[in-house]
């Protein structure tokens, strides 16, 4: 997936999110660190662009390190969790780059519950590569990319990396 394809996917996601969120519904985006955060910011901007009548949608960031189920492994520095809006009053759209086993989303849901009781939580992902290990599904999917379990899916975003790109590497296929 190149930059243009990522753009198209995000545009469509933003439209879908607006379609399924009637006027007057308080929406807030929460990006999962690391690359869910810039994606959440982009989606917030796009929804604002497509429907200027809505108030600016708030964006928060969520670090899930402390809620992961793989403790006992070497730890990188966790990122900051910063959700400035009142989660209890919002319909939260959780945003991540790659949807894989479902374990990050499980951890994110637990982390979110500790912060507040959102009215609803929906999941938006840029790439769904399959291989779920938990009964969790996404509500908004940018692109389905079938992969083998050995392959690596890497999302690069210009806010963090040099460019916008999705790369599938490794594996035998």
């Amino acid at each position: 997936m190149d930059a243009a394809a990522i753009d198209r996917s995000l545009n469509r996601l933003a439209h879908e999110i607006l379609e399924r969120s009637p006027e007057g519904v308080a929406l807030g985006f929460v990006g999962i660190h690391t690359r869910g955060v810039p994606l959440a910011e982009r989606l917030a901007k796009l929804t604002q662009k497509f429907d200027p009548s809505r108030p600016v949608l708030p964006v928060g960031q969520l670090d899930i390190s402390f809620h992961r189920d793989d403790i006992g492994r070497a730890k990188p520095a966790p990122k900051i969790t910063d959700i400035a809006f009142d989660v209890d009053k919002e319909h939260v759209i959780l945003v991540d780059d790659v949807f894989f086993t479902g374990r990050s989303v499980r951890a994110a849901l637990n982390a979110l519950v500790d912060i507040g009781r959102a009215k609803t939580v929906r999941l938006a992902v840029l790439v769904d590569r399959g291989h779920r290990q938990l009964p969790i599904r996404a509500d908004y999917v940018g692109k389905n990319i079938p992969t083998s379990i050995e392959e690596k899916v890497e999302v690069r975003l210009s806010e963090i990396d040099a460019n916008d790109e999705v790369i599938v590497s490794g594996g035998t296929v």
Partner: peptide, 11 residues
């Protein structure tokens, strides 16, 4: 985390 209403994480 300490500033949140629930100051506990399950790590």
């Amino acid at each position: 985390v300490l500033e949140r209403p629930i100051k506990k994480v399950p790590s």
